[in-house]
């Protein structure tokens, strides 16, 4: 899909001019090539891939999946229009709050030891579960 005039209505970047708008990877995914900082909000009716960190106070809302190739410390909401099957992947998954569809989770109080590995969050049996991200035969969503 090329950048047309409709694209501006789908993605909102407060404080960022249209010329700085990220390009669409395909019809349904956008690529954000920067660190998303406090007060910034990225909403998209599809998947969001961030090549950078998501800082505390930032918010990523996607109708589809969210992948953060960096440290995820802010608030993310995957499957915002109600899709339970959506997942969130982060190089480091340390979100302030993580939401999938209408499920909301946060780290337990007093949790100090943060994981040092890529992780994936998805809904299993009605609860949000976080697991080590694995590649190859144990592909995400198809394992076990």
């Amino acid at each position: 899909m090329t950048e047309d005039s409709n694209s501006s209505s789908l993605v909102k970047f407060p404080g960022v001019g249209l010329d700085e708008m990220e390009e669409f990877v395909d019809d349904n995914t956008i690529l954000i090539q920067r660190t998303v900082r406090s007060g910034q909000n990225i909403s998209y009716n599809g998947n969001i891939v961030v090549l950078g960190d998501v800082n505390p106070g930032a918010e990523i809302v996607a109708a589809g999946n969210i992948i953060v190739m960096g440290v995820l410390r802010g608030v993310v909401h995957a499957g915002a229009s109600g899709d339970d099957d959506c997942i969130v992947i982060g190089f480091r998954l340390h979100p302030t709050q993580l939401r999938i569809a209408n499920h909301i989770t946060r780290a337990p109080d007093g949790e100090e030891d943060l994981s040092q590995w890529p992780e994936v969050a998805r809904i299993k049996d009605g609860v949000v579960t976080i697991e080590l991200y694995q590649t190859g035969n144990h592909r995400q969503g198809k394992a076990t």
Partner: peptide, 17 residues
Amino acid sequence: IGLRNLDVVLGLENRIV
């Protein structure tokens, strides 16, 4: 608004919906 901090000072930042 736009520079909230009271939530962090109270340690409630991860409960905001």
